[in-house]
C-alpha cells in the first residue's frame, strides 16, 4: 500500500497537524492516531545545553527506520505510520522526532507508538553532539534506553 507509511530524515521542522491529517485521510476505518514528539531539552546530565547537532548514517538510517516500522506492522494492526527524525543543528525547545501510529482503536496505536520510539532509540543510527558552556561533547547511550527496548522482546 503506497504512502501508508511515511519515513523521513530531514533538517526542516515538521508540522504535527498536517502529518496527522495525512494519516487520518488514509482510511475512514482509522479510529485512533497516537503521536509522540521528542523535544530538545536545555539540560542533560546536570549541565545546561545550548545547542545540539544530530549526525546520522544516510542510507542505513532510512532502512533501520523502515525495519522498525515493518516490525510494528507485524505486531499490531496498524493502518498507517509516520516517522520523521530531524538531523543537523537544533536548539532547546526544537522538535527532534515525530512518531504517529494509526489504527482502528487506541490500544494498538499507543503500544506501536511506544515500541517504535523504543526501537528507534536503540537501533536507528543517529548520534547527538551537544554544546555546553564547557565545550562540545557526544551524548552517551543510556542503559535505560536498552532496558526500554528489551521490554518488547518475546
Amino acid at each position: 500500500m503506497a504512502e501508508r507509511d511515511r519515513i523521513a530524515v530531514q533538517t526542516a521542522a515538521f508540522d504535527v497537524g498536517a502529518e496527522t491529517a495525512r494519516l487520518a485521510a488514509l482510511d475512514r476505518g482509522i479510529g485512533a492516531i497516537a503521536s509522540f514528539v521528542g523535544l530538545m531539552r536545555d539540560q542533560n546530565n546536570g549541565d545546561a545545553v545550548q545547542a545540539m547537532t544530530l549526525e546520522h548514517y544516510p542510507g542505513m538510517t532510512e532502512s533501520a527506520l523502515a525495519d522498525i516500522v515493518a516490525e510494528a506492522h507485524g505486531r499490531w494492526a496498524l493502518m498507517g505510520t509516520t516517522v520523521i527524525h530531524r538531523v543537523g543543528p537544533l536548539h532547546p525547545g526544537d522538535p527532534i522526532v515525530l512518531v504517529l501510529t494509526a489504527s482502528a482503536h487506541r490500544g494498538e496505536a499507543f503500544a506501536a507508538c511506544e515500541f517504535i520510539m523504543d526501537y528507534l532509540k536503540t537501533r536507528a543510527p543517529f548520534w547527538k553532539h551537544e554544546t555546553t558552556a564547557s565545550g562540545g561533547r557526544w551524548v552517551e547511550a543510556r542503559d535505560s534506553d536498552d532496558n526500554a527496548a528489551a521490554r518488547w522482546n518475546r
Binding site: H85, K121, A124, P125, F126, W127, E140
Partner: peptide, 10 residues
C-alpha cells in the same frame, strides 16, 4: 563496513 558508537537519537 561502518564502525560507530552506540546510537543516541530520538
Amino acid at each position: 563496513v561502518a564502525i560507530f558508537p552506540p546510537v543516541t537519537g530520538g
